[in-house]
Design a protein around this nucleic acid. Structure first.
Lengths: 292, 292
DNA sequence: CCATTTATACTCAACATGAGTATAATCATT
DNA sequence: AATGATTATACTCATGTTGAGTATAAATGG
């Protein structure tokens, strides 16, 4: 006889890039991610996830991958296990009441370094205060929020956890009611913002070796649109000539023959993703470059 | 009111490298991985995992990371969710009755390409028969089991799934009682062999960018031992001079000043892992090389 | 027609990588 | 004591890959 059953919750981080901005699908006015319990009727975990996202947001789910599973802190009889997923799509159709796309940098303003290092003056001051003279704290701080060189865009989760430990996030202080610093981004319910941090970190790592960006782009796109999508996700700007060179040598895309129109400057060629590369390379080496 | 609770099972793939061979900790005479249900007393998923491994094998758990979570095929009321983990340790102490370390290539003989491409003659013949003239099948086959060049050691799970689909594995034919080909490795209960495939694939990918091999080595080791451990995991042989060059330029290790003794040939210097690199680089760029 | 804007094509130095060769220090044997 | 086998360690060299910068082309709006 089993010791005790648990409830299994499914949580979705659905990402799109619109107008050069990375966005995430939320419910409850940006306060929560789409989620719900695994039910008897669900044929699989992904099927359950699709059902909940569909019910709560009326938005279809495209590419999906599992993120992480974690359990409630206290192990009571009413404990729950949360299984989180990352999904990539494009914003389509009218928004369903209760569902909203939000820019992900609204939740993580310190993660946007596209225009040089993010402005962290107030944040950094607070963190310095927290670290004090404690050497391990100072080392962690220098690693996660370096001055000048050395920003590592993949450490999203680690930075979030540091800010939590330092007591600078509203959700870290629900009990103490302490003062919340401005510039620490929007709060979310439970650990949803932590899950979002995990998703961003995963995606930032993944775009470098797997051609997943194309899930976020329309069928036809210019190289600049491709580059700007990468930049939006990575929170870093890229060196244009080198970016093009890499895309070309990788043979990821092919010209459609058409030209983009309606914009300033010389019209750009339109490209499409060469779906054959999925068959050719399967999962292996598809490097995409990030500038330092 | 929740629709229905599920049982959450915890499954461990515990890996060690001993005598230049990658090994995995099993129970039931190699037929199962250590596992058990999450219980009310477990403070966290990892705590539950540690409790089960300890109870079933009396072996301590070192470095641990989550692998994947999946649900039972049929979504009945007695459904279960399995959360699998990868752990890295060293074989220590006497083996506990019921627990056994097994070479992982006993389960995946086709994955060992250290002495040139693995001998797959009978396997390949059977796969050719399964593929027939179907172009997608043939393409998949050429990708996963290429002749000559192009073997990708990370596609462990994909190869396992292909063999399953082709009906060449005993666990894929529990109902049909068909003839089992020799050279298809040892069977395991449920989907434990699939989980082992996932673990191998994850580890083979991870050793290339994160210094996790050192979890499997003694405190002091020679560069050849380090190289052989990498080779054991990757199932590939490495170019010795280039391997050493990379280790040195990465500053991953430092000399202890001692020399190894008792073996043939010129004695090798002993090295230890520079634990500072964990602090310096945290999670980022630590490339380890694999020969093609 | 000119300034502005974006696209696209090159160049060059620094660094990393794959492959191979040469020499040094042990041990086991003859 | 010399020899060969075995392993360690140090170089070389051609080829790729990467970061950074420059130059030219084709559109638009005044």
């Amino acid at each position: 006889m089993p010791d005790s059953g648990v409830q299994a919750d499914l949580i979705a981080v659905l990402v799109a890039v619109t107008g050069g901005e990375p966005r995430v699908l939320t419910i409850e006015d940006g306060f929560a991610l789409p989620s719900g319990p695994l039910q008897t009727g669900h044929r699989s975990l992904q099927a359950g996830l699709r059902a909940w996202v569909e019910a709560q947001t009326h938005h279809p789910l495209g590419y999906v991958e599992q993120l992480y599973t974690f359990a409630d802190q206290r192990g009571g009889a009413d404990r729950s296990v949360s299984i989180s997923y990352l999904g990539l799509t494009r914003e389509v159709g009218a928004s369903y009441p209760g569902a909203q796309w939000r820019g992900w940098y609204e939740y993580f303003p310190w993660e946007d370094a596209r225009k040089g290092p993010p402005s962290l003056a107030p944040l950094r001051a607070a963190l310095e205060g927290w670290a004090g003279e404690e050497p391990t704290r100072r080392a962690r701080l220098a690693w996660l929020f370096p001055e000048g060189e050395g920003w590592n865009e993949e450490l999203v989760l680690q930075r979030y956890e540091l800010l939590w430990e330092a007591g600078l996030l509203p959700e870290a202080m629900r009990k103490t009611q302490a003062h919340v610093l401005p510039g620490t981004g929007l709060e979310m319910t439970h650990d949803h913002r932590r899950i979002l941090a995990t998703a961003i970190a995963r995606l930032r790592a993944k775009i470098k070796y797997r051609p997943v960006v194309f899930e976020l782009l329309p069928k036809e796109f210019t190289l600049l649109e491709l580059q700007q999508s990468m930049e939006a996700l990575a929170g870093q700007s890229l060196h244009k000539p080198n970016f093009r060179r890499l895309i070309e040598t990788q043979n990821l895309v092919e010209e459609t023959g058409e030209l983009a129109s309606g914009l300033a400057g010389r019209p750009a060629k339109l490209f499409r993703f060469r779906a054959e590369v999925l068959a050719e390379r399967g999962l292996s080496g598809t490097k995409l470059p990030l500038v330092r």
